[in-house]
Design a protein around this nucleic acid. Structure first.
Length: 787
DNA sequence: CCCGTCGTTATTTTT
DNA sequence: TAACGACGGG
């Protein structure tokens, strides 16, 4: 696509951000201000207009979803973006560590342990701890790693005042390193340490990436900041994008200071603010602004509503209890649906997952389709963890945690005592960098095991060895993985023009050819078939089949789904490694059965809404103690307020807030006070319905005439908000107009219709697609191209 | 090795 | 309240 075309849809600030070069750049992008468009356009612009080599562009995001979206949209603007590195922080770390596996003292086909695995390692490393204590320690260790603190860092005291903690951390780390694997924290921290200590690697990276962009910078942690710092050489162009008002992950180590202090950390930084909001009507933004301006620690900005006033005044509804709340919500949805609103327009937001239950039961009763976001965590299911453990162990047979998980599953009479014997033998026999594995230890341990366990181990070893042969795994294959990774990198290094006398490339530079690496991937049989067979042979299928019968679960189905997801990977050590990376770095897979096409109401926690938008939003449970939680004060209260801000700014057209007088909590029914955030909204900004709690009336609403309409009158009230100013919209979106859509590119309006409530345009896109839109709801993704 | 019972304990969670 | 884990008995 021509630059003049994609630049023409930008507003002046966006354009400035895209064209900016030279100094570091901080883009403060408010909610709904077209942030992703700016980043993707910038990538295209850099490649097309400034001649930057696409391979030397690194764009990092936090979620896989965001990375994918960014990649797709960038490619639509500039096909060569396919070569850019658009990935999550963690997948970048995994790539980095695989490339530098030797220097980082890891096996190149390492896998990544999740939080549960961390707990298991803590327990094995420090057996005196109870499970609960172990998970506390594991949590603190990951926090320490988020702050990039090593075992001997004196600042560990700020993570935990427990004098044993540094030692616990040390024991954990030692045990972890014996497995040759890493945890999530290592994926960021180890690259930082390696670059700090190894100038060759650091200098290589400086030449490797000339442009680094970071999305959602407000949620980066200290380790990620240090990674950015390490990756930035003198000539690196650094651009971070974020919104300090949307920082909501402090409890996971995110550091708002990163964005607040960016200008200090990167001297000469230019700041560009994107404050034109294309998502929400003005009254919604007004409320959001009124609330968030109560925070003190912020850079400060006010969004302007490009969509104008709208017809709907946000509503605050006071209800008696959570049953009424669920009832009111379902009533509201049903009324709107009668008027032709799709269920998918609606999102119900709440602070804690447990709050979804009320709505789920109510919706089941009322036959309202819904989907709960983040509820089914596919990769946390037992059966999936089992098969992943089998694969991880195949890939890296030093993996103690996976070994313990699978060796006796299904039962092979190898209990924990036998497992301990094998592991301690492994620890005794292995030496630094030796190829000795747990599998070898199993064989060597046969003599010291009881007969029953011996049979089981024989069975297990045979199973694993056969599988390893089948996938082509040998004692050398970890080297093969390394060489393959380095080859790929060497090709790119050559393209970018980084000299050949690098440690990275010199050992095999003569073998280079583009086909070598890419062509290989097409042949071979599918990894999915291999996994399918493994599920049979290992008997985990049988095992979970019987579990299904007992408890009516769908484990076999889930296993099948897992198998299917491997269909695009080849059955080789490298293919397996790729696949494991893919799943381990994306635990968020929702709705594996593809139900997401259905027209359904979204039930979602406030945290999970980040980056999303909905035409109609209801934020529920606005009571002190629920949201914000009672224990939140000072900076943590500010974070809760930002969470509220994030929720508010998800709404495009209509916004409702609900608060209950009474709530069942932990088995008790308690009287609740309204959330203090509600009194930060000015009375004239919101329409109040229901019985206003006395304390609330007194605190900020006593001069208000509105006592609120009674609930009954509300239920009978006709919904008028749907009537929109159609003529105003029709004037803008006329037949023949050329438009641009973020997902589909350029097109032309070929038909317009106005039925009783909605104005619909039909667009013929240049890529052939014909789509129908309601401009009212799509104003932020869809725009008219000026001639 | 599996099942039932009792007691404990309640956030948010991109990777 | 409800859900999960620890523990003990069959």
């Amino acid at each position: 696509m021509e630059a003049s075309e994609y630049l023409s849809v930008l507003n002046p600030e966006q354009l400035e951000a895209v064209k900016h070069t030279g100094s570091p750049l901080l883009i403060l992008a408010g909610a709904g201000s077209g942030k992703t468009r700016v980043i993707t356009t910038k990538i295209a612009y850099l490649i097309q207009e400034l001649g930057v080599n696409p391979s030397s562009i690194l764009a990092v995001t936090f979620t896989k979803k965001a990375a994918q979206e960014m990649q797709e949209r960038a490619e639509r603007l500039e096909p060569f973006s396919v070569k850019s590195n658009i990935r999550t922080f963690h997948s970048f770390g995994a790539w980095f560590l695989r490339l530098n596996a030797e220097e980082a003292n890891l096996s190149p086909n390492f896998t990544v342990y999740d939080d549960d695995d961390m707990v298991t390692i803590v327990q094995k490393a420090i057996p005196v701890l109870s499970k609960q204590e172990a998970s506390g320690v594991a949590h603190k260790i990951s926090l320490a790693k988020d702050y990039c603190m090593e075992c001997d860092d004196p600042n560990l005291i700020s993570i935990s005042s427990d004098p044993d903690f540094p030692e616990q951390y040390t024991l954990y780390q030692k045990r972890l390193e014996e497995t040759g694997n890493v945890d999530f924290g290592d994926l960021i921290m180890k690259p930082v340490l390696l670059m700090r200590d190894n100038p060759t690697v650091r200098n290589y990276m400086h030449r490797r990436f000339s442009v680094i962009m970071v999305d959602e910078y407000q949620d980066s942690n200290v380790a990620q900041f240090k990674l950015l710092q390490m990756l930035s050489g003198e000539k690196t162009y650094v651009c971070v994008v974020g919104d300090d008002d949307q920082s909501i992950y402090k409890f996971r180590g995110a550091e708002v200071r990163n964005i607040l202090d960016f200008q200090k950390q990167f001297p000469g930084t230019q700041v560009i603010k994107l404050v034109r909001n294309y998502r929400s009507f003005a009254p919604i933004l007004g409320i959001a602004d009124a609330v968030v301006s109560h925070n003190t620690d912020r850079l400060g900005k006010t969004l302007t509503a490009e969509r104008g006033e709208g017809k709907h005044k946000p509503e605050l509804i006071f209800l008696a209890n959570q049953d009424d709340e669920a009832h009111w919500v379902s009533q509201k949805i049903k009324e709107s649906v009668k008027l032709g609103v799709p269920f998918s327009d609606w999102a119900i937001l709440y602070r804690t997952n447990a709050q979804s239950l009320e709505f789920e039961t109510e919706f089941l009763h009322k036959h309202i389709p819904y989907s709960v976001v983040g509820a089914l965590k596919f990769y946390e299911r037992e059966e999936i963890k089992d098969i992943v453990a089998y694969l991880s162990f195949l890939s890296n047979p030093k993996d103690e945690i996976s070994f313990r998980r699978i060796v006796n599953k299904p039962a092979r009479t190898v209990g924990s005592v036998s497992q301990d014997k094998i592991i301690s033998l492994y620890q005794k026999n292995k030496t630094e960098g030796s190829p000795y594995t747990i599998l070898d230890a199993c064989i060597d341990a046969l003599k010291i095991l009881p007969k029953k366990a011996r049979d089981g181990i024989n069975e297990f070893v045979e199973l694993i060895q056969n599988a390893r042969v089948e996938i082509g795994m040998s004692s050398l294959s970890s080297q093969e993985v390394l060489i393959a990774v380095k080859k790929q990198e060497a090709i790119i290094a050559q393209e970018i023009g980084i000299g050949q006398n690098e440690t990275l490339t010199n050992s095999f530079s003569d073998e280079l050819s583009v086909e070598n690496v890419t062509e290989k991937r097409i042949k071979q049989k599918k990894l999915s078939d291999f996994i399918d067979k493994l599920i049979e042979k290992s008997h985990i299928k049988n095992y979970h089949e019987s579990q299904d019968e007992i408890s009516g679960t769908q484990r076999v189905l889930n296993l099948q789904e897992f198998v299917n997801s491997a269909v695009l990977y080849e059955c080789t050590p490298l293919g397996l490694c790729d696949f494991l990376d893919h799943i381990e770095l994306d635990r968020s897979l929702e709705n594996p059965y593809g139900e997401d096409n259905e027209d359904a109401v979204t039930l979602i926690t406030l945290h999970n809404t980040k980056g999303l938008e909905f035409p109609r939003v209801i934020i529920t449970g606005l009571e002190y103690g629920v949201f914000p939680r009672r224990d939140k004060v000072d900076s943590e209260l500010e974070e809760e307020r930002r969470l509220f801000y994030v929720g508010l700014t998800r709404a495009q057209n209509e916004l409702y807030l609900t608060s209950c007088t009474m709530r069942r909590l932990y088995g008790r029914t308690d009287f609740m006070e309204p959330s203090p955030f509600l009194s930060e909204i000015k009375p004239e900004q919101i329409e109040i319905t229901g019985k206003i709690p006395y304390s609330f009336r007194k605190s900020s609403y006593n001069s208000q005439n509105s006592f609120g309409k009674s609930i009954d009158s509300f239920y009978s009230k006709k919904i008028s908000s749907i009537e929109n100013d159609i003529s105003e919209i029709a004037e803008i979106w006329q037949k023949g107009k050329k438009i641009y859509h973020d997902d589909y590119g350029y097109g032309m309006i070929i038909r317009t219709t106005a039925d009783d409530a909605e104005y619909v345009i039909t667009v013929q896109f240049e890529n052939g697609a014909v789509k129908r839109f309601m401009p009212k709801y799509n104003a932020n993704r869809l725009m008219i191209v000026k001639d």
